[in-house]
Design a protein around this nucleic acid. Structure first.
Length: 266
DNA sequence: AACTGAAACAACCGCACAAAG
DNA sequence: CCTTTGTGCGGTTGTTTCAGT
């Protein structure tokens, strides 16, 4: 009946590392393939989701800026719940994130509306709360709302500069459109040195890098890209053909420990 | 200090569409 | 042209953390 158990639920750090590695190799298109080859017991769908919502370089984390909030409200009223479309206008934000944001804020608004109704019905007869979309105000831009550690030690996308107008979805994968400098992170040297020297980095370690924005000040949209990218080879890999990759594993130690290695040679 | 509700975030599910065979 | 497969999207649910009482 069950062919292979499919893992569900929260992703482990190793899984993240593994996924990033393989996405680096094969791009972010063939998710089924990536899922299979990586040995992750996840569906391609699940891998894609994890990538898009969490691991993607260029993801901005942390609270929405007032600007972004305004934009979301504006675009939502214009396009409806086309979250992915809206997300494209908000570099670094995912449709999921926006969706969640909207949901909580709709709830808030609904509550406010209820309150107002009660008040207005008891006091006067004016309606008016309806389409006013008082979001930009109600979202209290100044509300500090302490950063949520909901995400393991990495949701601190504080100093994310909201610059750049490009869908972060187009990581391009192998067939990256040679438009602009799609990914700043790619220029960073490192080779999936999750184990650098003799030190082994956990995902937390990797993420921590981003708690010090000064170190990334040269970056714009990608400023808070998933730090794991720092540890992944990119350019070299992107430009390699599949065959080349087979012949020339990037970092042997790791490489061989990944199921992919067996897959390729076997 | 313990409890409870709300908020934020992560992940899954099902459907629709597009491309490949 | 039809079928299959993969991907993207929107909706929904579950989990964790925080703030207020």
């Amino acid at each position: 009946m069950e062919k292979e158990e499919v893992r569900k639920g929260p992703w482990a750090e190793e899984e993240d590392v593994q996924l990033v590695f393989y996405v680096n190799l094969f791009g972010d298109r063939r998710w089924d393939f990536v899922a299979k080859v990586s040995g992750l017991k996840r569906t391609g769908k699940s891998c894609r989701l994890r990538w898009v919502n969490y691991l993607h370089p260029g993801l901005k984390r942390g609270k929405m800026t007032p600007n972004e909030e305004r934009l979301v409200v504006e675009l939502q009223s214009k396009w409806g719940n086309r979250w992915s479309r809206i997300a494209r206008r908000l570099p670094g934000r995912t449709d999921n994130e926006i969706k969640n944001y909207w949901r909580t804020h709709m709830r808030k608004k609904a509550q406010e509306r209820k309150k107002n109704k009660k008040v207005s019905s008891s006091s006067s007869s004016s309606s008016s709360i309806s389409s006013s979309s008082s979001f930009s105000n109600s979202s209290s831009p100044s509300a500090p709302s302490s950063p949520r550690p909901g995400v393991p030690a990495l949701a601190k996308g504080k100093g994310a500069g909201a610059e750049g107008e490009r869908s972060f979805y187009d990581t391009g994968g192998v067939e990256l459109p040679a438009t602009t400098d799609t990914r700043v992170e790619k220029n960073k040297t490192v080779v999936l040195e999750v184990e650098e020297g003799n030190k082994v980095y956990s995902m937390d370690d990797l993420w921590k890098e981003f708690e010090f924005p000064e170190e990334n000040c040269g970056l714009t949209t990608q400023a808070v890209a998933s730090p794991i990218w720092d540890y992944c080879p990119t350019d070299s890999l992107w430009s390699m053909s599949e065959e080349e990759r087979q012949l020339q594993p990037v970092c042997d130690n790791h490489f061989q420990s990944f199921p992919f290695y067996n897959y390729m040679i076997g």
